[in-house]
């Protein structure tokens, strides 16, 4: 029974990682870059919810909508200002810029909200579900998170497979020049990808901070890095890979925390990244990319 409730807890955490990992993996697939500021977009989403609900006293729905709008605009702005000028630069320059953007966002949050950890009011007001005569209790946040993850997965896959924009995304990720010859505006497609990834980050922030429930300027960094590991674990560039990688990582982290050691759970997660990279560098569902000349 206890194992089952740990498993559910792991799936909840994994669902959050999955949703964040989608942002990493889509951006990598299309722009071939690692957006290390992605985790901090989650933190910004959390602070938007915190501001709208706890400071301005508005409704949770309004707070969630505000978070999605702010994060989407932020993602598109970051791409426009920081990454687009570097489209032809070396990947190292882009990586360093992404880290720079990450610190910029963290320090802006420090400046505005201070260094104290704020308590975060859950946007959900749901009764926990009790199973097996009360031995297992599933929180409302957990249920919503898992459902949201499934809906996002189905929605995103359908969008990419069935819509014109989705096909353009696949085309750009595979061959930018050939996509241009079809009339695809590559910059617009990359911006759309950042918008989707960042909107998902906002959703992830609502789910994550409602479960913890606290927030500070660095609260996005750790889930961001773990979601990145999830994306690599599943095979970076692959959308189902991000989902599988995220869930597995969440489950491993929680089981490690409960059965092995609370302190070592993060170390276990990072150890897994190293092992995966050693055994299968392309990840579980990763495709092999070979450069065409």
């Amino acid at each position: 029974m206890r194992f089952l409730s740990y498993l559910i807890e792991g799936i909840r955490l994994g669902s959050v990682y999955s949703i964040i990992a989608l942002g990493y993996t889509m951006v990598y697939g299309i722009a071939k870059m690692l957006n290390f500021a992605h985790g901090d977009v989650i933190m910004v989403g959390g602070f938007v919810v915190f501001t709208v609900m706890s400071i301005w006293g508005q409704s949770p729905i309004l707070a969630v909508i505000a978070a999605v709008i702010v994060c989407t605009l932020l993602g598109v702005t970051i791409e426009r200002i920081a990454y687009r000028p570097l489209r032809k630069a070396t990947s190292l320059a882009v990586l360093i810029t992404a880290i720079g953007v990450s610190y910029l966002l963290q320090n802006l949050a420090l400046l505005i909200f201070g260094a104290n950890i704020k308590s975060f009011t859950s946007v959900f007001n749901l009764e926990p579900i009790r199973l097996a005569e009360g031995e297992i209790s599933i929180s409302g946040e957990t249920v919503v998170t898992i459902i949201a993850c499934i809906v996002i997965m189905i929605g995103l896959t359908t969008f990419i497979k069935r819509s014109k924009t989705g096909r353009a995304m696949i085309a750009v990720s595979e061959d930018k020049d050939a996509a241009v010859l079809m009339g695809v505006n590559v910059n617009k497609t990359i911006a759309t990808t950042f918008a989707i990834g960042s909107a998902l980050a906002a959703v992830a922030s609502v789910l994550q901070f409602s479960s913890i429930p606290s927030i500070s300027a660095t609260s996005g960094a750790m889930p961001g890095i773990k979601a990145f590991i999830a994306a690599v674990f599943g095979g970076i560039g692959s959308i189902p890979g991000a989902m599988i990688g995220g869930i597995l990582l969440g489950v491993i982290e929680i089981l490690g925390r409960r059965y092995i050691s609370m302190e070592l759970s993060d170390a276990i997660v990072f150890l897994i990244l190293i092992l995966v990279l050693l055994v299968k560098p392309t990840g579980i569902l990763g495709k092999k990319y070979h450069e065409k000349v």
Partner: peptide, 25 residues
């Protein structure tokens, strides 16, 4: 229209989807 050297079809899209990409604009 440009038919590039080495064909450069989109391998992860179906034949039909590739043709739709041709009519993208």
């Amino acid at each position: 229209a440009h038919v590039p050297e080495g064909r450069r079809v989109f391998s992860q899209l179906t034949v039909y989807e590739n043709l739709l990409m041709g009519a993208y604009t």
